[in-house]
């Protein structure tokens, strides 16, 4: 790593400050919450951040219609209720929603496929913001395109609101597998790899050298149990997002704390077993192979 000369005057919104923020979340669980009360339950359970939204993905799926940014009152209520970082979602390409979220002082913006996309060609220019962005990806090319647009954190998409971890596993394995493949490329092959991945050559080269993304990689979309969270960690996720899995379950406080424990001790089956006892009902869940293509959120984003 090179040592650059320090900024003479304080500088906000630098790549290091944005990416560094995500580094602080590593090993942690980020939980979807829809009320200040839920946010407090999440914080008490040991969440490293909460995602403030009006409806959890399972309800967005059930209700249908257009899903948009949440009401600023609701986001501010949650910001006021907890001291941990608060994230909120904008629609893909809806940079005005993102501007609003920045003005509300959220700590991270999730440009999310869970909401109805506002632009079917372009994502938001995330370099234009002081607030850092997290974006979803199903494969390495998609992750690198988001990073090129300024994303400071990536989450594998999975299939939100299903309570089914199968897509989360698929996407994380895909990303990790493609990174491993790049590691094996010689310099001549990286140009063609960049073309294939539809990603900037410089980023492809950086990933080949680092053996990882240049930003933190979390997993999302379908984590419902402590074992699910530990599975994603063992597969290489640096932390997990849990959406509907907690507050759509029988005993949210207990399940939330259990998922936090299993995320830290992801490689210790005894602790995961202990954490998995008597959690009450898990969310019911949806079998992803019966989900029509048009209802797959992971397909959103380009």
């Amino acid at each position: 790593m090179s040592v650059t000369s320090p900024a003479p005057t304080p500088e906000t919104g630098t790549a290091r400050v944005k990416r560094g923020m995500a580094e602080q979340l590593k090993g942690g669980v980020i939980m979807d919450v829809v009320t200040p009360e839920q946010a407090k339950i999440a914080e008490d359970a040991g969440a490293v951040a909460v995602m403030a939204l009006e409806r959890v993905p399972a309800d967005i799926r059930k209700d249908g219609g257009v899903a948009r940014m949440s009401d600023p009152d609701m986001i501010e209520g949650i910001i006021g209720a907890v001291s941990i970082p608060v994230m909120a979602k904008s629609r893909i390409g809806h940079f005005v929603e993102a501007q609003v979220l920045q003005s509300l002082g959220v700590d991270y913006i999730d440009e999310s496929e869970v909401l109805t996309p506002a632009d079917e060609v372009n994502h938001s220019d995330k370099w234009a913001f002081t607030t850092p962005f997290v974006c979803g990806a199903t494969n390495l090319g998609e992750a690198l395109r988001r990073i090129a647009e300024g994303a400071a954190m990536i989450r594998s998409k999975g299939e939100a609101g299903t309570g089914n971890v199968v897509e989360a596993v698929r996407h994380l394995r895909q990303i990790k597998g493609e990174i491993a493949k790049l590691r094996g490329c010689d310099n001549n092959e990286l140009y063609a790899a960049a073309k294939e991945l539809r990603a900037p050559y410089e980023l492809v080269k950086e990933v080949a050298e680092l053996g990882k993304l240049p930003v933190v990689l979390f997993s999302a979309g379908g984590v419902a149990t402590p074992a699910d969270a530990a599975l994603m960690r063992q597969l290489g996720a640096e932390g997990v997002f849990v959406g509907s899995g907690i507050f759509k379950s029988g005993d949210p406080a207990k399940r939330a704390a259990a998922i936090v424990k299993a995320t830290t001790f992801y490689d210790d089956p005894k602790i995961i077993a202990e954490a998995s006892r008597n959690l009450g009902e898990a969310m019911v869940g949806i079998n992803c192979d019966t989900l029509p293509e048009t209802e797959r959120y992971a397909n959103r984003g380009w």
Partner: peptide
């Protein structure tokens, strides 16, 4: 909050040379 997060040069007692990059 995060929007106010910043980088600045910091002189640290006991660390010789140029200021430390404070993140």
């Amino acid at each position: 909050r995060q929007n106010e997060s910043f980088e600045a040069a910091v002189e640290v007692e006991g660390v010789a040379g140029a200021p430390v990059e404070g993140v």
